[in-house]
């Protein structure tokens, strides 16, 4: 659905993106994570067909996106700094979108009007920032795109609206197999919506993961033993991180869950608990070895 290979982009002789490659499957929600200035917005502008890459392949819906109006018919881009035509009301904006997108659904537009409770005859510039973002979603979802590219989508939305927008996106992904690319500088914001994440740092993709695999693969366990003969180093566990508080070990372990519990049983632990692990922790421990100050990138 979205295929990027060996992408390079420089603006004003500054290298913004260096050899970026990734793939987003149809019906997937892909979270693009990165700190400010990592190149997320530039990458998204390229994926939306606004900017042209200096080098590399950028294919959306199996065609080059740049200046390709046929493909762009099915792609909607929501930038982080929203733009509306000056003095326009939502209704007028809807007319504009309708004239541009063949897939525009009037029915969808009317349905969403009820979801958002916004006055469509009011000038958009008079709305608050959060309301403007809702208008942008309203318009974007009414165009029924196959690919939705959203830069920092939850910025300025309150918890209720955030939930509403999230469910709207998920609904379209489930019903129509819409493909979504979401960027964020905050992992917590997207961890419950994305199925894949990629981390962009200083113009390069650091890693790409399937979140379900990741969650199934890394575990946080708390164990305590009667005898002092347990040493995580010598055990058959792939330990990413260890802490010892008194006689209690706190371990982050990679591997199959049943295999880990089987291994632990051998030492006959007094306590054996599996603790919830946030996505953030997983990343921190995953990359800890690579020596990155990961917290700074994501949070």
């Amino acid at each position: 659905m979205i295929e990027v290979q060996g992408l390079h982009k420089s603006i004003d002789r500054t290298k913004i993106l260096k050899d970026v490659s990734f793939y987003v499957q149809k019906g997937s929600i892909y979270g693009l994570l990165g700190s400010n200035g990592a190149g997320k917005t530039t990458l998204m502008r390229i994926l939306a067909g606004i900017l042209k890459q200096n080098d590399g392949i950028v294919r959306v819906l199996e065609e080059d996106i740049f200046e390709n109006d046929k493909v762009k018919q099915n792609v909607v881009f929501l930038p982080d700094n929203l733009y509306f035509l000056p003095q326009y009301t939502t209704k007028q904006m809807a007319d504009y979108y309708r004239s541009m997108y063949d897939g525009w659904s009037e029915e969808r537009y009317e349905n969403l009007k009820r979801v958002f409770h916004l006055d469509e005859k009011k000038k958009i510039s008079q709305f608050s920032k959060g309301m403007q973002r809702q208008v942008a979603f309203w318009l974007a979802m009414s165009a029924k795109p196959d690919v939705l590219i959203i830069d920092e989508p939850f910025d300025g939305l309150d918890a209720v609206m955030r939930q509403k927008v999230r469910s709207l996106i998920i609904q379209d992904v489930a019903e129509r197999e819409m493909t979504v690319l979401i960027s964020s500088h905050n992992l917590r914001e997207v961890e419950d919506i994305c199925d894949h994440v990629g981390i962009l740092h200083k113009g390069e993709i650091l890693l790409e993961r399937d979140l379900d695999d990741l969650k199934a693969d890394v575990h946080k366990i708390q164990v305590a033993f009667q005898e002092e003969d347990f040493d995580p180093e010598t055990s058959n566990l792939d330990v990413l991180h260890q802490e010892k508080r008194g006689s209690v070990f706190l371990l982050i372990v990679r591997g199959n869950e049943t295999a880990i519990s089987a291994e632990m049983e051998k030492y006959r632990p007094l306590v054996y608990d599996r603790l919830p692990l946030t996505l953030e922790e997983i990343f921190i421990y995953e990359m800890g070895g690579a020596g990155y100050a990961f917290e700074n990138i994501i949070v």
Partner: peptide, 15 residues
């Protein structure tokens, strides 16, 4: 204007 330019050129219309 960056915002306006991105807006105008994200639509499915050739330049």
């Amino acid at each position: 204007v960056k915002g306006a330019s991105d807006f105008a050129h994200s639509f499915p219309m050739k330049r």
